[in-house]
Design a protein around this nucleic acid. Structure first.
Lengths: 195, 195
DNA sequence: TTATTATACATACAGGCTGTATGTATAAAT
DNA sequence: ATTTATACATACAGCCTGTATGTATAATAA
C-alpha cells in the first residue's frame, strides 16, 4: 500500500489531535502523558515531536480545534437573528450552551490560560469567538443603542462573565435550570448597557 | 540556641511560603521546582514534604494567603461606604485595584483554577472575596433594590467579569486609563440590575 | 532525672515524563 | 538513477516529584 506523504501526515496528525483531545479533557494538560497519547494513536513520540515540535504544540493544535468549533456555533446562532440586540443575546445564549461540553470547559476555559498564558489564550479566542462579541458590541454602539463605553473592556468582561457562568452551571445539580438563571442574569446585565 | 518546636516549625513554613510565593508568581506552578524553592528557603525538600505533604499542599498554603489578603482589602474598601450600592461599587473597584498585583494575577487568577480545579478554587474564593460579593447582592435584593435574579449566578458572573477585567487591564499600556474604562463598564452593567 | 515518644527535619532512591539526538525507510525532486 | 527531504522509530539524558529511611532534638511520661 502506497500513500502520499501529505496523506500520511494528515492521517497521523488527525489521530494525534483526536486522541490528545480526549486525554487533555480527561486528565488535564499536566497529567496527560505524551507516551500514553501516542500509544493510543498507534505511533511513537517521534511522530508527535516531528509534527508538533513539543507537547505544547500538540496542545495548541487541539485548542485551536476547540476554539474554532465554539466560534462557528456561536456565530451560526447569532446570524439567525436580524436585530443586533437579538443577535447578541442569541450568541451569548449559544455560547452558554456550547461551552457546557467537557472538552470546552477543561481545555479551553480551565487549562488554556495557565498553559499558554493569558495573552496567547486571549489572542486565540479573539480569532474565534470573542471577535464576534466585540464586533457586535461595536455595531450596537455605532447605531446608538449603547451607552458610550469602551467596547474592548466590555467584551472582555462579558466574556469573563460567560466563561465563569458555564463553569458554574456545570456544577449545579440542575444544569438546565442554572442555564436559565445565568441567561436571565446576563440579560439584565446587558440591559444596563442600552440607552 | 534552643528553640521550641512550634517556633521552629512556624519559621520554616513561613520562609517556605514566602519563597514559594515568589517562585509561583515568577515561574508559574508547573515550572516552579521544589528543589529551587527549598534551596532559597535554606532547607531541604524533606522539610517541605513534612510540613505541606506535597507540592500542591505548598501551593494551597500560598494561595490561601493571597486570597486572604485580597479578601481583606476588598472588605475594608466596601465597609467605608454606608449605602449598599456604594459599598458594592467600592468593593468592586477595590478588587480591580488589588488584583493588579502580579502575585494575584498569576497565582490566584491564572494558575489556581487549572491546578486545583474549578470547584476547589471557587470554594477557597467563596471563603474570602466572593462571599462578600454575594452577601452584598443579597442585601440589595432583600431591600428591593434589585431585579428578581439569582444572586448566586450573578455573583459568579460578576466575579468572572472582574477577574477577566484585571487581567486585561494589566496588558494595556495605560493601566490607569484601562482601569477607569473597566470601572465605567462595570458601573453600567451593575446599573442594569437596579430596579 | 531518666526513659520514651513524637516532631522536624536531611538524605538517598525510584519512577515518570519531556525533549533531543540519531538512525532509517520511503516519497519527492533532480 | 541519484539525491534530497519527509515521516517517522529508537535510545538516551536530564529534571522533577514523591517516598522511604535515618537522625537529632524537643516534649512527655515514669
Amino acid at each position: 500500500m502506497k500513500r502520499t506523504k501529505a496523506a500520511q501526515s494528515e492521517a497521523t496528525t488527525g489521530r494525534l489531535l483526536a486522541v490528545a483531545r480526549e486525554h487533555f479533557t480527561r486528565d488535564g494538560y499536566a497529567a496527560a502523558a505524551t507516551e500514553r497519547i501516542v500509544a493510543e494513536a498507534g505511533v511513537t513520540r517521534g511522530a508527535l515531536y516531528h509534527h508538533f515540535g513539543n507537547k505544547l504544540g500538540l496542545y495548541r493544535g487541539v485548542l485551536e480545534q476547540v476554539h474554532a468549533e465554539v466560534g462557528q456555533r456561536v456565530e451560526a446562532a447569532a446570524m439567525t437573528e436580524q436585530d443586533p440586540w437579538q443577535a447578541l443575546q442569541a450568541g451569548c445564549r449559544a455560547f452558554l450552551e456550547v461551552a457546557a461540553d467537557a472538552d470546552v470547559q477543561r481545555i479551553m476555559l480551565l487549562d488554556a490560560p495557565a498553559v499558554l498564558g493569558w495573552a496567547e489564550w486571549r489572542a486565540m479566542d479573539a480569532r474565534h469567538s470573542m471577535r464576534h462579541l466585540q464586533e457586535q458590541l461595536e455595531l450596537l454602539a455605532q447605531e446608538g443603542y449603547l451607552h458610550p463605553l469602551d467596547t474592548e473592556a466590555l467584551a472582555y468582561m462579558l466574556s469573563g462573565a460567560m466563561n465563569e457562568a458555564t463553569l458554574w452551571i456545570a456544577t449545579q445539580e440542575n444544569p438546565q435550570r442554572a442555564l436559565q438563571k445565568a441567561a436571565d442574569s446576563l440579560h439584565r446585565l446587558l440591559a444596563g448597557l442600552a440607552v
